[in-house]
């Protein structure tokens, strides 16, 4: 039972390992060069997933520096609520709220709410239920709860405790993704040239053509159908 929990807790590694093995298998077992390329891509993608998953922290938000953002917002919250809304929306739009971001904003929103006005704290479940509502949640929280500039310092202090995902593996893997794209491009370009030169992209036919060029005939190799 312990082992099952142990294995299940590490499900991201299972995804990574399965994809990796599938990719490697395709590269080795398939004779068609395009399929080999696809296998190579699956293999590389598995590593991307691995890197991304090790950088993710449970409940962590996107690693974008929030405290200043919050301070600015709280300083003007009292008199400029509408313009604040516009600003935050802009910020959220630039962030492209994906799932992890969404969680992070929920967290921040909840903290703010509990700090300043527990009575009016929005129900956490309701926030989670709101579809793709990261921007709305965070807007709702300060607008409801913040009374004046006085709360700014506390809020900034509180915001420093926001949990961030580790950005470094993500940045690293962005580099690796670019490398992967370049590799795929070079590989596909080579396949085009191979097709022009040989008229086929099946590995066994290519080998046969090379053998004929080298020995003048297809040498008998054990295990290969004639």
């Amino acid at each position: 039972m312990d082992f099952v929990t142990f294995a299940l807790e590490r499900y991201n590694y299972w995804i990574f390992i399965t994809l990796m093995m599938m990719g490697l298998y395709i590269v080795i077992a398939r004779g068609n060069l395009i399929k080999k390329m696809i296998g190579l891509n699956v293999f590389q993608t598995s590593v991307f997933i691995y890197y991304i998953s090790i950088g993710k922290i449970d409940g962590g938000t996107a690693p974008i520096y929030l405290p200043d953002d919050l301070k600015a917002r709280t300083a003007h919250a009292g008199d400029h609520a509408p313009s604040l809304a516009g600003k935050s929306e802009m910020g959220a739009g630039a962030l492209r709220p994906d799932e992890s971001l969404h969680d992070g904003f929920d967290l921040a929103g909840n903290d703010l709410a509990s700090l300043t006005a527990p009575a009016e704290r929005p129900d956490a479940a309701a926030i989670h239920a709101a579809p793709a509502g990261g921007a709305n949640d965070i807007l709702a929280a300060p607008a409801l709860t913040i009374d004046g500039p006085g709360a700014g310092a506390d809020l900034a202090h509180q915001a420093a405790d926001i949990l961030y995902s580790n950005p470094l593996p993500h940045v690293l893997i962005l580099t690796a993704i670019v490398v992967g794209i370049a590799t795929t491009a070079v590989g596909l370009a080579l396949i085009v040239r191979i097709r022009e030169a040989y008229g086929t992209i099946e590995e066994d036919e290519l080998e046969a053509a090379d053998d004929i060029a080298e020995f003048g005939h297809i040498p008998h190799k054990p295990g290969r159908a004639a």
Binding site: L24, L40, I191, I194
Partner: peptide
């Protein structure tokens, strides 16, 4: 033309 297949094999192995 075998340079092409050689290069492709190198690419696959090198990427792995």
């Amino acid at each position: 033309r075998r340079a092409l297949t050689a290069s492709f094999n190198y690419l696959v192995m090198g990427t792995i």
